[in-house]
Design a protein around this nucleic acid. Structure first.
Lengths: 145, 145
DNA sequence: TTTCATGCAAATAGTTTGCATCAAC
DNA sequence: GTTGATGCAAACTATTTGCATGAAA
């Protein structure tokens, strides 16, 4: 499963004239082996746990390449820093973001997706991607209040 | 129309123990008199055009208060800086963002809104707000390619 | 052995904050 | 007169970049 993503990334590197370096391989491994939405800090600490060294600069530069490969997407859930997420299979999804505990739930709704395509057509707009983030309180945090 | 927003903002200030200062009044005027999605830089230059002086710090601090008042919302269309938008009447809308010319079109789709509420219910999630941004190419930019 | 990636530190961009001064009430 | 807002400059955070060194092909 993540093997696949890893292989696809390595192939992307080779096919597009990028070097396959130790750092790129390891940063990719860490990201493809993690579920969810990683901050650069998360990635750093995952690397540290595995006793892998890679500078922040290399993490950012590798993330750029990964985004170009289409195997990773970027989020910015209202916060000032970015979060990164591996794109698994063809499963696109949107997010419910808890503004209290910062937990992020994923969901998928085909009707919403279709309606977006309709909206775009109506405005003669060519969609490349979209971000739908719903903010509020998850069930746990809602109860606390 | 923007008179209304202005008045509501001044009322909000008074009702919540904030001082009604020259800067706050003028920053609010500029924002309520502008359509669209203003960056802080935009706001600064609009103020400059009117020969009004206000420091960046005050602009940011006033924007915080305006957001608390609910009369302004914040966006972050994938970029690293924020954009601010006056909330007119009760007209909520979403955005089509051109990744080529950066133009932002607005749209409203009630069915999408309803479906979001359904999704939230299914996940026992209490919505406070949401952001749906569709990225791609506007008709002009799509033609150029 | 050439070319591209890395690591470090310095630079940048956007935003926030501390503090003395100033304006609102 | 008090209290809270302003303006300035300095601090901060996330991210990017320049450049000498090191690793990939």
């Amino acid at each position: 499963m993540h093997e696949d993503l890893n292989d696809r990334f390595l192939k992307f590197l080779r096919d597009n004239g990028y070097l396959v370096t130790r750092q790129r391989r390891r940063i990719a491994e860490v990201i493809f082996n993690s579920k969810g939405h990683l901050s650069v800090e998360d990635i750093q600490s995952l690397l540290r746990q595995r006793k892998i060294s890679a500078s922040i600069a290399s993490i950012y530069r590798t993330l750029d390449v990964m985004i170009k490969s289409g195997l990773v997407v970027q989020h910015r859930f209202g916060k000032r820093f970015k979060r990164f997420e591996a794109v698994r299979e063809d499963w696109h999804h949107d997010h419910l973001v808890c503004i209290s505990c910062n937990k992020v739930l994923e969901f998928k709704n085909d009707t919403i997706e279709e309606l977006q395509i309709q909206v775009a057509e109506q405005h003669d707009f060519m969609i490349t991607n979209h971000k739908l983030d719903i903010y509020g309180f998850c069930s746990k945090c809602a109860k606390k209040k």
